[in-house]
C-alpha cells in the first residue's frame, strides 16, 4: 500500500481496503485511516459486544483478541489490522456452547451491570492463552487492565480461577 494524498476524494484522505478474519469469518472491508478497531466493530459491523467505556485504554471494556493476544480495540486503528485474526466476545462461544469462561462468569455471578463483562471475558481468554497466572494474586495483577465499576472483582476472580483449567485443556481461543 502506498501513500495517499491527504487531498484525495472529497477533501478527505483516502479509505483503505483491509482483509481480516473476524470471529472465524473472512471479511474484506473499506476503512478510513482514523477509524479505530473498536469503532469498526461497533459502528460498521454492529458487533456491539465490545464496549466503549473510556475510549482511552484505561478501562479495558473494549478488550478483544488479535491473533490470540488481548489488546484495547479503542487504541488500535482498524487499518493497521490488515490480515489479522480478531475474536470478540461474540466469537467466544462455539457450536452453541459457551466458552468455559462465559459459563464460569454465569455460575459465579461475576457481574452486576455487565458493561465491563465482554472486556473481562476477552481479557481472561488472553490471560489463559498467556499462561502466566498461577495464583489468585497473579490473576488479580494480570487482570488489572479491566475495571469494574460495580466492584464485582471478587466473583470475576473466582470465575477465572474456576475456568483456567478448562481453558488450558481445551486450548480454546
Amino acid at each position: 500500500m502506498s501513500a495517499t494524498s491527504p487531498t484525495a476524494g472529497a477533501g478527505l484522505p483516502a479509505a483503505h481496503s483491509i482483509s481480516l478474519t473476524l470471529n472465524g469469518q473472512p471479511r474484506r472491508l473499506e476503512v478510513q485511516p482514523w477509524t479505530t478497531l473498536l469503532d469498526l466493530l461497533r459502528e460498521q459491523l454492529q458487533l456491539t459486544g465490545s464496549k466503549k467505556g473510556c475510549d482511552h485504554g484505561q478501562c479495558g471494556a473494549c478488550t478483544v483478541l488479535v491473533n490470540g493476544k488481548r489488546i484495547n480495540a479503542c487504541l488500535s486503528l482498524a487499518v493497521m489490522q490488515d490480515g489479522a485474526e480478531i475474536t470478540t466476545v461474540e466469537g467466544l462461544a462455539e457450536d452453541g456452547r459457551l466458552h468455559p469462561l462465559q459459563q464460569a462468569f454465569i455460575e459465579r455471578d461475576a457481574f452486576q451491570c455487565g458493561y465491563c463483562t465482554s472486556g473481562q471475558l476477552c481479557s481472561a481468554v488472553g490471560l489463559a492463552n498467556e499462561g502466566r497466572a498461577h495464583s489468585r494474586d497473579e490473576i488479580r495483577e494480570l487482570m488489572s487492565g479491566n475495571l469494574c465499576r460495580c466492584g464485582a472483582y471478587t466473583n470475576i476472580l473466582a470465575a477465572i480461577e474456576d475456568a483456567l483449567p478448562a481453558c488450558r485443556e481445551g486450548g480454546r481461543s
Binding site: 479495558g60 488481548r70 484495547n72 488472553g126 498467556e130 494480570l142 487492565g145
Partner: peptide
C-alpha cells in the same frame, strides 16, 4: 507498567 493489553500493543 501499563496493563497486559497495553503491553501487548
Amino acid at each position: 507498567g501499563a496493563s497486559p493489553q497495553l503491553r501487548n500493543m
